[in-house]
Amino acid sequence: MTTPSSGSGGDDHSPEHRPDDAQQVGPGDAGADKAAGQRFVLHKPGGEPVKTGRNLPLAIASGCLLGALVFFSIFPLPALFTLITSAGVLIGMRELNRAFAAKGMDVAVVPLAAGGVAMQAAAYFGGADWLVGTTAVTAIAVLVWRLKGGAGGFVADTSASLFILAYLPFLLGTWMLLIAHPEDGQQRLVTFILVTISSDIGGYFAGILLGRHKMAPVISPNKTWEGFGGSVIGCALAGALCVVLMLDGPWWVGVVLGLAVALAATVGDLIESLFKRDLGVKDMGRFMPGHGGLMDRLDSLLIAGPVVWIVLTLLL
């Protein structure tokens, strides 16, 4: 499910060895990034070395391991995937809670954890209606839970909790809508994963080898338009192949799907970058060796999930 780097510009997510799960940005990060960048070196067409900013063999190995875990939860019993997304809810919530707590915000962990796990099962067994209903009930529970804390910080605390609710378990729930499709749910989920990974791979290598023109230097300095072009090409090709070979649909639906995923994945990367900059953290955790925290790896996948569900629902 994960790749050497998400998005279209080869962002540096190399984790630091710090005691806290949410790793704070500090003056020593630049030196550590430089050291990490020496681990694996590519070269541009002119021979200039390119620093990738991470231990790529380790990153690829851990990504493949997680991908294998996901694959064997999809086949032959797709209901097992609810356990994967439920674990993702709990791990990701832990990382987000630590990051918000560092800013003095008190997240409603108990109702979010219970509701977030329930939302995964609701989406798989009940569909979109049950996912929306469970989300609404969880949102109400979050607001009620915070009443005991009084007026001080109420808006900040509930805003953080509702952000987590919408950003993590709700968007993960759309993955369950994909796999719950009665005819070809497993293939739809695999299509989603492969197309999104193609965005990451195409954007990563196009960005570090050809990247010249910055896309959003204020938000993510390493994102380039050349990297975005690589994402578009990778997604369009993967989308066309997946739709034709696995979903028995026309190639043009795959191209539309690929274009939508390329845009969604890039936006997801930028959202995650801005989120971490605002909270003052470099990586959300150290869950995956060579990758950082789980939330660092889910950025593009979280935003792409509902986009894939919408496109496939409307066009297939």
Rank of each mutant, 00 (worst) to 15 (best):
T2A: 13
S6D: 08
D11I: 11
H13I: 03
H13W: 09
P15Q: 03
P19K: 13
D21C: 03
Q24S: 14
V25L: 14
V25A: 12
P27R: 03
P27N: 02
G37N: 09
R39N: 05
F40I: 03
K44H: 06
K44S: 14
G46L: 14
G46C: 10
E48G: 05
V50N: 05
N55S: 14
L56D: 03
L58W: 08
A59I: 07
G63E: 01
L65M: 11
L69I: 13
F81M: 14
T82W: 04
L90W: 00
M93W: 06
M93L: 15
M105H: 12
A108V: 06
A108W: 06
G115Q: 03
A123E: 09
Y124H: 08
F125M: 06
G127R: 06
A128V: 13
A128W: 13
D129F: 06
V137F: 10
A141W: 03
V142R: 01
L143W: 04
W145M: 02
L147Q: 12
A151S: 14
A151N: 11
A151P: 01
G153E: 07
A156M: 06
S161Y: 00
S161T: 08
L165M: 11
P169S: 12
W175K: 01
L178M: 08
A180S: 15
H181K: 08
E183F: 12
E183T: 14
G185H: 06
R188W: 01
R188S: 09
V190K: 07
I193V: 15
I197N: 05
Y204W: 14
L210N: 09
H213K: 12
M215E: 05
A216S: 15
P217W: 11
P217R: 03
S220E: 12
K223L: 07
F228D: 04
G229E: 01
A236Q: 02
A236M: 13
L237W: 03
L241C: 14
L245I: 02
M246I: 07
L257W: 00
G258A: 10
L259E: 08
A260G: 10
T266H: 11
G268R: 00
G268Y: 01
L270D: 03
E272Y: 09
F275L: 15
K276R: 05
L279M: 15
V281L: 08
V281D: 09
D283G: 05
G285I: 02
G285T: 06
G290T: 12
H291Y: 04
G293P: 10
M295N: 09
L298A: 08
L298Q: 07
L298W: 10
D299I: 11
S300K: 08
S300T: 14
T313S: 13
L315F: 08
